[in-house]
Design a binder for these strands. Structure first.
Lengths: 108, 108
DNA sequence: AAATCTGTTCGTAAAATTACGAACAACATT
DNA sequence: AATGTTGTTCGTAATTTTACGAACAGATTT
């Protein structure tokens, strides 16, 4: 009954996954990924939700580390956080590399 | 003010991400990925949570499509769902391929 | 048939998530 | 100084998530 502690990698992967676990936030990330400029207003413009809600979603993405905000008065510029993006990319890549289903008798 | 509808791909990515948005569920997927046999009992054994909670997490992973369960009386055998796993892998891969941060003036 | 093993479902409670309008703060313009 | 623009924060409400023990159901063993 050796209860495996959840390790830091799993925690971090879950944190990123949770941040991406809402369609609006995925849409935001997709939008940021293909933009050079990325002010709040432009982001809000493409989203079918209220300003306050958009701000809230951006806050969560920021807290997960996936994006960062910069104040450029009187606007706010958002962008993808390179380092975290890379880390998330690596974590997910490793994660999905773990199951070679074809050689796994369990998946059939 | 063209409100971009959230498309099906974003929805599906978010669905998978949400399912992976909890450390316990990441641990379950990791465990399943490296096992040939995968009965409920073995899964529960490695998790620091109650039986009922483990069952609940498995149910969510199943509803997201990431795993499937098979009754092998008197046990229940769980395994990764190959097709969904591959779909998720592809969706995340495409997603993380979207930002070439180095060429993006926004991320600096 | 009674007891056992296996895992799900039920009922419940606490906490977190999602969404909105209104109020607010910071800065620029008039 | 008054006004306008931009985006966050506040307060609130409805829903969902997470977790647990207890009760249950299916199958096997005694």
């Amino acid at each position: 009954m050796a209860k495996t502690a959840i390790d830091e990698k799993q925690q971090q992967l879950a944190r990123y996954a949770k941040a991406l676990g809402h369609p609006i936030r995925v849409a935001i990330m997709n939008f940021l990924a293909e933009q050079d400029t990325c002010f709040f207003g432009e982001i809000h413009e493409i989203l079918p939700i209220a300003k306050a809600t958009a701000s809230q979603h951006l806050k969560e993405l920021k807290e997960a580390g996936l994006i960062q905000g910069e104040i450029v008065p009187p606007k706010v510029k958002y962008c993808i956080n390179r380092d975290s993006w890379q880390e998330a990319k690596n974590l997910f890549s490793e994660f999905f590399g773990k199951c070679q289903c074809s050689k796994n008798g369990c998946c059939e």
